[in-house]
Amino acid sequence: MGLFDTLRSVLGVNAEAGATRDADPEDLFGMSTAYVTMEADLDFVPAGAAALCFSAVDSTDFDAAVDEVETILHAGQEETGTEFYHREDDHGYHWVVLEDDDPEDLVTSVHFAADTFEEADFGSRLLAAVFGFVRPRDDRRAYWVYSFRRGAYYPFVPTGSHERDSRIEFKLAAVLDGELDVEDDESYWYPLWPDGDGHPWE
C-alpha cells in the first residue's frame, strides 16, 4: 500500500468506519489550553504554524466553500496578522497553512476554516488539523493531529526520515489526556511524514 492509499485509509475510509464519536470543530479549541501545558510541563513551545488538511471534490459548491475559507482568513489576517497559504501536496491533498506567533490566533483560524467547511456540508472532506510545537533545547519537533474522521487527537513526534519518537509521543498523550480527547487506539496514530525536513504540510 502506498503512502497515498495509507493516508486515505487511516484518516479517511477506515477511520470513518471505525469512528467512535462524531468530529466537532469545537474540539479544536482544546488546543488553546494544551499549548500552555505543552510548554509548562513538557518544554515544547508553539512552532508558530498549524494547518488544516482536506481532500477536494470536483464541485462548484466545494470551490465556493474554499473561496469562502480564504475570504475569512484574509479578513482575519488584517485583524490578527495570521498569514496563510493554500497548497496541494504530492498526494493530491490540500492544506490551508497558517502562520502566527500567537497560538490563540492559530486555533481560532483553524476553527473558522473547519467550521466553514462544515456549514457548507463539506465536513466529510476534512481529514486533519495539525498543530506544530518545538522543544528549544534540541529543536525536536512535535505535533498534535486532530483526526476529523475519529473525532480525537493524537501526538506525532518525527525524528528523521520515516522515524518517530514513540517514547515522547506516549508521554505527550499521558500528560494531555483529559485536556484533549486523545485517540486511545494507537493504530490510528498515523505519521504525517513531510516530503522533506519541514513540517508535514510542506
Rank of each mutant, 00 (worst) to 15 (best):
F4A: 04
D5K: 13
L7S: 06
V10C: 13
L11D: 03
A17K: 04
A17F: 12
G18D: 03
D27S: 01
L28R: 04
F29V: 08
T37L: 13
M38H: 11
M38D: 14
A40G: 09
L42V: 01
F44C: 04
V45M: 10
P46N: 05
A51T: 11
S55F: 08
S59R: 02
F62D: 05
D63M: 09
V66N: 08
I72L: 14
H74A: 03
A75T: 10
G76E: 11
Q77A: 10
E78T: 00
E83P: 00
F84I: 11
E88R: 05
E88V: 10
D89M: 10
D90A: 14
H91D: 07
H94K: 15
H94R: 14
H94N: 15
E104A: 11
L106Y: 10
H111I: 13
F112S: 04
A114N: 06
D115N: 13
F117Y: 14
F117I: 05
S124F: 13
L126Y: 08
L127G: 11
G132E: 09
F133G: 04
V134T: 15
R135T: 12
D138T: 08
Y146S: 11
S147I: 06
R150D: 12
R150M: 10
P158A: 05
S161D: 12
A173C: 01
D177V: 01
D177K: 00
L180S: 12
D181W: 02
W189N: 10
W193E: 00
P194Q: 00
G198I: 06
E202M: 05
